[in-house]
Each structure stands twice: as C-alpha cells, then as structure tokens.
C-alpha cells in the first residue's frame, strides 16, 4: 500500500526528529536539509536509511545528493513507491 504525499512528509519529519531532535513542525517541504535544517552528511545517510525502511523503497547513495529540500525527498519517495 502506497503512502500519500502527506504521509510521506509526516513520516520524514518523524525520522528527522528522531535523528536530530528538531521539532516535526520545523520539517517543512520547502526547507533545505543542509542550509535550513543544518543536517550534516552523516545524519542525512541515517535519515535516508530510515526512510528506506519506513517507506519500503530504495534510495541509492548516488541519488542522495539530489535530495536538497524536504520536498525533493518526498517526490523521490513517491516516485519510488510507484515503481
């Protein structure tokens, strides 16, 4: 069963909160992981791996650099779910 876009966003916010302690409401779609949320590459890898598990998708390492904003990640996961 596929997750809705809103569910993916909410789920990502929970993963970011778990990794960084940032409040879930600060994890908005338009925010940049590095510039706005101050997430470093190591936290980003942990977030990606946790997202893979939560949403049942694969996000190859080479694609992670393209996930600049939270919306990029939501879109990527939505597309990967359909595949």
């Amino acid at each position: 069963m596929a997750f809705t876009e809103a569910e993916v966003l909410a789920g990502l916010a929970e993963i970011v909160n778990e990794e960084t302690g940032l409040a879930v409401e600060t994890v908005e779609a338009s925010k940049s992981f590095t510039d706005d949320l101050d997430i470093d590459s190591i936290s980003m890898m942990t977030i990606v791996v946790n997202a893979e598990k939560k949403f049942g998708v694969k996000i190859p390492d080479d694609d992670v650099k393209d996930l600049v904003t939270v919306q990029d990640a939501v879109d990527y996961i939505n597309k990967a779910q359909e595949a």
Partner: peptide, 14 residues
C-alpha cells in the same frame, strides 16, 4: 547485531 539482523545498509555510518 544490526549487520546480522538487518544488513550492512543499516550499520550506522559513525
């Protein structure tokens, strides 16, 4: 334990 149970992808980078 993580490697055995969940595979290398879940081993923390740090």
């Amino acid at each position: 334990d993580t490697l055995q149970e969940e595979g290398p992808r879940r081993v923390m980078p740090l």
